[in-house]
């Protein structure tokens, strides 16, 4: 029923996400890696870049208000129901997957959101990273999810 509006809402929220990433400085792998360089704050190099903490703080605050509002509503404006994760277990796939992700994130300064958004810059390193990321996702789907 609301198919066209739902498509428009997805396009608009995706654009807002991409604009937010652009403004926040998080498309810059050196800045992201600089945040993870926490030891740089203590060893005299003065290389730690806390910007990402401000980005996460802003994002979680506004998203938290939106989610608090969502809890008071019977359903979303354009869909039948809120789709929320039901798995609450803190298990080995969660921790192992997050650890592998952190390794790749630290090596490259890229996580999925900024890397996908930056595809529009046409930069070769971005294309290489995202292509490999899609292969990694397909490998999980092929060898783990269906196993």
């Amino acid at each position: 029923m609301n198919a066209a509006l739902r498509l428009l809402a997805a396009l608009a929220t995706g654009l807002i996400f991409g604009l937010g990433l652009s403004l926040s400085g998080m498309l810059d792998p050196a800045r992201v890696q600089g945040f993870l360089d926490v030891t740089g704050a203590f060893d005299g190099r003065q290389t730690w870049d806390p910007t990402l903490a401000f980005v996460l703080g802003g994002a979680v605050s506004v998203a938290g208000l939106g989610y608090a509002l969502a809890r008071r509503l019977p359903r979303p404006a354009l869909a039948a129901a809120f789709e929320l994760p039901t798995n609450r277990r803190i298990d080995r796939p969660l921790i192992g997957g997050a650890a592998l992700f952190g390794l790749g994130w630290g090596l490259s300064g890229f996580c999925p959101g900024p890397a996908v958004a930056a595809l529009s810059t046409g930069a070769l390193p971005v294309t290489v990273f995202v292509t490999a990321m899609l292969v990694g996702m397909a490998a999980h789907q092929r060898f783990v999810a269906r196993a």
Partner: peptide, 18 residues
């Protein structure tokens, strides 16, 4: 501010599309 925009996107996708 960029983070707040990201949060707005996250909030709206839930409030509109669930």
């Amino acid at each position: 501010l960029g983070g707040a925009l990201i949060g707005l996107s996250v909030a709206l996708l839930m409030l509109l599309n669930g």
